[in-house]
Structure formats: structure tokens, C-alpha cells
Write a protein that binds this DNA or RNA. Structure first.
Lengths: 354, 354
DNA sequence: ATAAATAGTGTACGCGCGTACATTTTTATG
DNA sequence: CATAAAAATGTACGCGCGTACACTATTTAT
């Protein structure tokens, strides 16, 4: 049952016009709902279009309108060893997609190259996109240079879950300072006083925010910030696992630890376990992100939920409004996080080892 | 430092031609490497293009070439409660992306509507895409109808990780029959004889393949296939959790269970644990997919690794070759899976049930 | 030397649609 | 009924690029 490619020739506006007995312009007017059209004419045109199975050629429309009608979304290069949870990006992406579809726009997925920087202005200059949403940006010289260039070119774009101190790029963030502060406050409320911190690389504003939240919580409680109790990983599970040895070495000074994300927290828990230190019993652990695995690990991980989906949606909403209004308004939004308490951090919880 | 939108006017081929002192056609020839061009002319043109910062307008190119240069990727509607691991799609998507970027094409992300079917021919008819890769397809009447329509229209497309018995749609799959057989064989080798099966919905060919693998393994070992020991979930963790009560009710007849994916396996393990049945001790468990969480759950889950990334890449390779060759060749590839043995299924790890 | 092949370049047009402007038809107004 | 205003429709053109074809300059074959 090999199909005849009916691909060959598309039906065009001209044919619809002929069949309806009107001019091409009238067909356009009817289909775009622009200008006054007599009701009977409208019906004739719609009828003809329907009979011919006419669908406007999107490429020609974009060409004539000088608008691509699509929004680019940049994904960072993610090597085989995933630095971020795929969860993170999937959630944001689905939020963006939901909004874009709702507005009848297209989503062009752009992948950052493995090596070197990406020229963010290029997809604009080639006319492929009308707006850009950048995920997984980092504070690095090359990256920053590209962002500044993009900013100066005046094309509408925004960052998600990253900001650059000293620069006013448009962006949607979550309030990670507050999220982290609440996480650490929770530990303090549980009675822990010697709270360590496993952070991620400083090139992510997330890390700086987490540190600030950690600092604030300690300060409020009158607890000292001990730099020896601040460790650094790279947000991967493995790095959390590796950090376990450092943490274990100072375990006599530590009764709780706040990890900057769940993946590290889970790796840490495993690493500590192998050294005889039981999370939720010998040490309290709090993570961040509320990924799927947080509820299935042992013990279930207390963490901070981040509204990634909503963040993606808001980013898309902003970009779409910029595109349609044409106005060049600055925005920077922080959405709220939510502490999710599970067994890894609660004192009463300690029970089973095995 | 508000930017002047340099967006206003793009530089065009015409300007490059003038500056280089040649015709527009020659500019085109140089930039597209087509036809003979004198070396000195080539340099003049490239120089002029560089000086003007000229970039061809992609939309105009597509319009003139009557090719969109982009490949569509359909994602199923994923409601708040994710039916599949996001892992699954992220991996496939990154494989597709890798290949598409390599070939200088674009990736248009298409989201299936929440309700009703999607007309897969539409993005072709509007000229938005040249080929389509469909993820998360299911064997349902409406879906099948759309696929048949698409097939008959002759546009190049393929499915990933799904096939329809009786239809020869192009597709990239993994050998789930074999993967499942090996998983169950592994359990048999460990000495288990009463092996239950927690499957997913039959609208996924994955489920049928898993069942067949399960059947084959039992048959080879001369073990009976007991329909009472076959349970059904919907691939979500929650459904695995719920299945635990059914499994627990028959626990005296079961010493191992093969779950059709990791999410269900993990939910099942939790549910059983709450009923006093310990995975890896009282019951052996094997999952499928090798998601991130499989290595961090307790006990670490024996599972079957599926090369999702590679599958995406192969799908993209096929579609690109179809696009460029124009030939309409049929393909259906099955990639190999790999059994990953962890603690949830090995006898030494545990004590003994009854 | 001349003809024929080839390299190099320019001219002209179409891709399908949006839309400014011109023109015709209808309606409102007195 | 005449006329101005408004509504409805048609004509014409441009969006930026690819490319068929025509044409000229150069090389090769005879």
C-alpha cells in the first residue's frame, strides 16, 4: 500500500480565489479576518477553501509578514553525564510549550554547542525566531559576553532560573534565597545547630542565592557561619557522593547538612551510608528541587519544591507579550518555592538502619 | 544602557552585491557554493558580506527552496502527573537534537493537544517541517487513524519506541522482547521460579513486547505462565504502588516480579515495603529503563537499560536521509538493550523468604 | 587559425502571501 | 433622486532568495 505522494503540489490561495470567484486579496481578508467582507463572500471563500483542503503556507506567511512566529528555546549542552536533572529542563520546557501552543506559536529548540559559545543573535538575524528563552545559562566570561551582545542588539529574550548580578537581563527566577533560608530554618527548628552546606558551582546564581539563604538563616538564629562546613559539588549525584568523604571527616562537627540540590543530596546520603552515617538518623539532610527521586530514595528527602513548569510558562508569557506589544519593557520575576518535609530531616524519624 | 534596536533593517543580498560590484546571482553562487565562480570574485563577495555582517534570511531561503529545513518532533501531552519518566523523552530528544544540529537543520517541537487527536499532516501541509518524529505514540483508534492518514499522504515520518502490529510504519525501537526475556531469565538463573509480572497498558507496544519476553523466558525454562500473576499498571510510580496490594495478596505464590518499567518497580517496592515485604530479600524485583532513580532507590534496582539517546539519534539520521535522498524507503530498526544487575534481584543479598 | 567547449557572470522570474492603494458597489443623507 | 460616505472588492507590488536561461570571456580541440 505504498502511498502516492500527494505531497507534490500544494493548493494555493490563487486556486481558492478562482473557485470562489473572487480575488486573492479577498481570500486573504477572509482567512485573516481583516477588513470588511460581505457575509456571502466570506461563506463562498470558506467553502472553496474547505473543498480544496486549502491551508495557508506558513513559510510564505512568515516571509510576507517578516515574522517567524516562533520562539527559540536554548538548551545547554548536556554531555552524557547529565549535570542537571533532566527533570529540571523537562518541566520548564513543558511550561513554555503549554503557553506557546496556546498562542498558536511555534517552538524552535536550539542546542548549545559542546565547545565554545553560541551566538544568540544569529537565530534572530536569520529570521528564524522572534524571541528567545535561554535555559541553563551560567556566569562565565564567554557566556556573559554573548548575553551582553544580545541585549545590545535589542532582540527580546529572557533567562530562566539564572540571573547575573550587575546586569539587568530579563528573567524568570525562583526565590532561592528564601527557599534556602526556609530549608535551613527548618533544620534549625528541628533542633540542629551545626548545619553544613553542600553548594554547587558559583557560576550558577542559584548557588549564590542558596548560600545567601543559608547565611541568613544562620544569622537569624545566632548561629555562626563556619566556612569549614561549606562544601562544593557540581550539582551531580556523583559530586555529592564524593563530598561524603569530606563531610564524614568532619562529622563530629556536623549534625545536619543542606545540599543545594537533590541529586547531590542523594549522592551524599549514599556516600555517608557507606561510611556508616545514616541520613535521617545520624545526620539530617535537606535537598533542593523536589525531583522525582527525592520521594523514592531512602530516607525520603526533605527538599524545596521549585515551580519549574510555572516558571517556563511565565517566561513564555512575557516573551509573547513583548513580541506582540513591541514594547521593550524590562522584567525580572521571582516565583515562590515551597519546603517539602520528608523523613531525611526530622528528628523523630530516625529508626531503621537494617 | 537601553539598546537601539538594530533590529530595524536587515542587510540583504542586494547590498552585498552592490558593495562587491557583482550581481545578486553571483552573491548567491558564492554563498551557496554552486556553479563556477572566479576566485577573485569569490573573495570580493565574501569580503563584502563580512563587512556588512550579512546573514542570509532563512525564511526567504526556505520560501525559495520550498523546504523548511526543519524536523518536527511530537511530544505526547504530559499532564501534571507524568505518565512516563521525563528521562525517557529527554534522552530521545537529546539524541535527535544532536543529529539535527550536526546537519544544520532545525528542530520544531510539537505538543500533542490535551484532548483529541493531532493532525500529523498539518505541519507538513503548512510547510513548517520536512519530516516528523513521533514520540509517545499509542495504539488507540484515533491515533492509529491519524498515523494511517499520515502514511498515505506520503510525508516522511517515523515512530520511536512504539510499533503497530499489522502496520509498517517507519520506526526505531528497542528489542524489548529480548530485553524482557533476559530480565526474566536473569531471575530464573537466580533460582526464582514463581515470577510475577507487572505490565503497562496494552496500547503501548512496549507492553506487548515485555509480555512476550516474559512468556518466552518462562517457556524456555519450562515454567508455567500463570495469568493470576500478571498485574497491570499504567507505568506510573503510583500505579506500581497500588499494585503492591494485589501482589502482597498473592505473595505466597510469588518469589520474584518483573515490572515493565522502573517507575512502577519503585512504587511497587515502596508499597511492598509498607506491607512488610522487602525487595531484594523477601522478593526479587527487576525493572526496566534504567532511569536515574533506579540506582538510588533502596535496594538499587536491577533493570534493563534502553539506549534512548541512540534511538533518537538513529531516528533523526533516518529522517534526514529520507529528506535528502527523496527516496521513500521503509525502515524499522531495533536497538539492543542491556541488563543491569543490582541488588534488588540477587539472592546473595537477602535472606530467604519462606 | 577557427570552431567548439567551458568558465564566469548577469537578467529575469517565481516562490505564496500581506497589504497599500485604486476602484467599484452599496448605503446613508438631504 | 442626487450625492457623499462607507463598504466591499480588485490590482499591484514587495518580502529575499534560488535558479533557469542568456550572454560574454576564456580555454581547448582541431
Amino acid at each position: 500500500m505504498r502511498a502516492l505522494r500527494e505531497v507534490e503540489r500544494i493548493t494555493t490561495r490563487k486556486q481558492v480565489a478562482e473557485r470562489a470567484g473572487v480575488s486573492e486579496a479577498t481570500v486573504s481578508r477572509v482567512l485573516n479576518n481583516v477588513g470588511p467582507v460581505k457575509e456571502s463572500t466570506r461563506r463562498k471563500v470558506l467553502q472553496a477553501a474547505k473543498e480544496l483542503g486549502y491551508v495557508p503556507n506558513a513559510i510564505a506567511q512568515r516571509f510576507a509578514r517578516r515574522k517567524s512566529g516562533s520562539i527559540g528555546v536554548v538548551l545547554p549542552f548536556v554531555p552524557k553525564v547529565r549535570m542537571f536533572s533532566t527533570f529540571y529542563f523537562s518541566e520548564i520546557l513543558s511550561g513554555i510549550g503549554e503557553e506557546i501552543v496556546r498562542k498558536g506559536l511555534d517552538l524552535l529548540l536550539l542546542f548549545k554547542p559542546a565547545d565554545g559559545e553560541m551566538d544568540y543573535t544569529m537565530p534572530f538575524r536569520t529570521g528564524k525566531i522572534d524571541a528567545l528563552i535561554i535555559l541553563g545559562s551560567r556566569n562565565r566570561p564567554g557566556e556573559l559576553r554573548e548575553l551582553i551582545k544580545l541585549q545590545q542588539s535589542g532582540y527580546p529574550f529572557c533567562l530562566v532560573n539564572q540571573h547575573f548580578p550587575g546586569y539587568s537581563f530579563n528573567g524568570i527566577d525562583a526565590d532561592h534565597v528564601r527557599g534556602s533560608r526556609e530549608a535551613v530554618q527548618h533544620l534549625i527548628e528541628q533542633g540542629y545547630k551545626r548545619i553544613a552546606f553542600l553548594n554547587g558551582p558559583v557560576e550558577y546564581s542559584n548557588s549564590l542565592d542558596r548560600l545567601e539563604g543559608y547565611r541568613q538563616a544562620l544569622e537569624e538564629a545566632g548561629l555562626p557561619l563556619v566556612s569549614d562546613l561549606i562544601f562544593e559539588g557540581n550539582y551531580s549525584r556523583t559530586s555529592g557522593y564524593r563530598a561524603a568523604s569530606d563531610v564524614a571527616a568532619k562529622i563530629s562537627d556536623i549534625d545536619a547538612i543542606f545540599a543545594a540540590n537533590d541529586r547531590m543530596a542523594i549522592g551524599l546520603i549514599q556516600g555517608l551510608y557507606e561510611r556508616g552515617i545514616r541520613a535521617g538518623v545520624d545526620i539530617a539532610v535537606v535537598g533542593y528541587d523536589n525531583i522525582d527521586a527525592a520521594v523514592v530514595c531512602e530516607p525520603p528527602l526533605t527538599t524545596v519544591h521549585v515551580p519549574f513548569h510555572e516558571m517556563g510558562k511565565r517566561a513564555a508569557e512575557w516573551m509573547i507579550s513583548q513580541m506582540t506589544s513591541g514594547a521593550e519593557v524590562h522584567f525580572y520575576e521571582k516565583l515562590e518555592t515551597e519546603l517539602i518535609v520528608r523523613r531525611s530531616s526530622i528528628k523523630e524519624g530516625g529508626v531503621t538502619s537494617q
